[in-house]
Each structure stands twice: as C-alpha cells, then as structure tokens.
C-alpha cells in the first residue's frame, strides 16, 4: 500500500474512535491536556498532540466532559478534564458496541485469511 493511502486509512479509522478513547482515558480520573495528548499520540490514536484539542472542544460543547482549574507547583494553572455523567454513559455504550464490532472485524479477517 502507498504511504499516503496508509495515512488516509489510519485517519479514517481514527475518526470514529478518538472521541470515545479520550473519554475512556478519563474513566481513570481527571487528566490535564498535555498528559492526555502524549498518551494518545504515543499509542497512535492521535496523529499529533495538537489534534486532541478539537476533540476536547467537541466533547465539552456536547456536555460529555467538564473542566476544572488547578494550581500547579511547577508552572501555570492547569485545566483538568473529567467526564460528566453523560460522558460516562457514552463510554459505557461505546465499550459495548466496540466489543461486538471489533469482534466481527476479527472474525471476518480470520475466516478470510489467505
């Protein structure tokens, strides 16, 4: 596969799962932007750190995530992100759907393996 096609495929695959993955990280507790971005970028779930912020903006606008300020010992105050009750419900629904869906993809790839 050509390099650009591979990049485009990854972009398309990320599109539907980045938001729920961001929410899923917050199941562990509140987190601030830099940590969240580095963690997801390291896993390849984000193309780059900066692409986290449009996702967070959408999640805030749709009421799935709320924010809180906290003073930091080492620098400027940090904005922490956490799930709202609607956010928790959304992650739960996603986990349910993802298990079924990814199981189906695995099955078809196994059955048709050459």
């Amino acid at each position: 596969m050509q390099y650009m096609e591979a990049v485009q495929l990854l972009t398309n695959l990320r599109r539907g799962v980045v938001e729920p993955c961001v929410l899923a990280v917050m199941l562990e507790g509140e987190i601030y932007g830099v940590d969240l971005a580095r963690r997801l970028t390291a896993l390849g779930l984000l193309a780059s750190d900066g692409t986290l912020y449009p996702v967070l903006a959408r999640l805030r606008s749709s009421g799935l995530v709320s924010t809180r300020w906290e003073e930091s010992r080492s620098g400027p105050p940090r904005r922490y992100y956490r799930l709202t009750p609607e956010g928790v419900a959304t992650v739960d629904r996603f986990i349910e759907s993802w298990r079924t869906f990814s199981g189906a993809v695995d099955t078809i790839l196994k059955e048709t393996r050459r």
Binding site: G50, Y53, S61, G75
Partner: peptide, 29 residues
C-alpha cells in the same frame, strides 16, 4: 496560523486556548 485556519469554526477559541495552554504547560518545566 492556527487561529487563522480555524476562522469561522464555532470551536475556534476553545481549540486555540487548549493548544496555547498545552504549550505553556509543556514549556513550564
């Protein structure tokens, strides 16, 4: 650059602010 590219987007200010704070945090060390 980012602000200009997001011109017209309803999320512009939230995104730019998030990225600005990311930079501040990352450089705070």
């Amino acid at each position: 650059d980012l602000r200009r590219l997001l011109d017209g987007s309803p999320d512009r200010d939230l995104v730019v602010d998030g990225v600005r704070r990311h930079i501040d945090d990352a450089l705070a060390a």
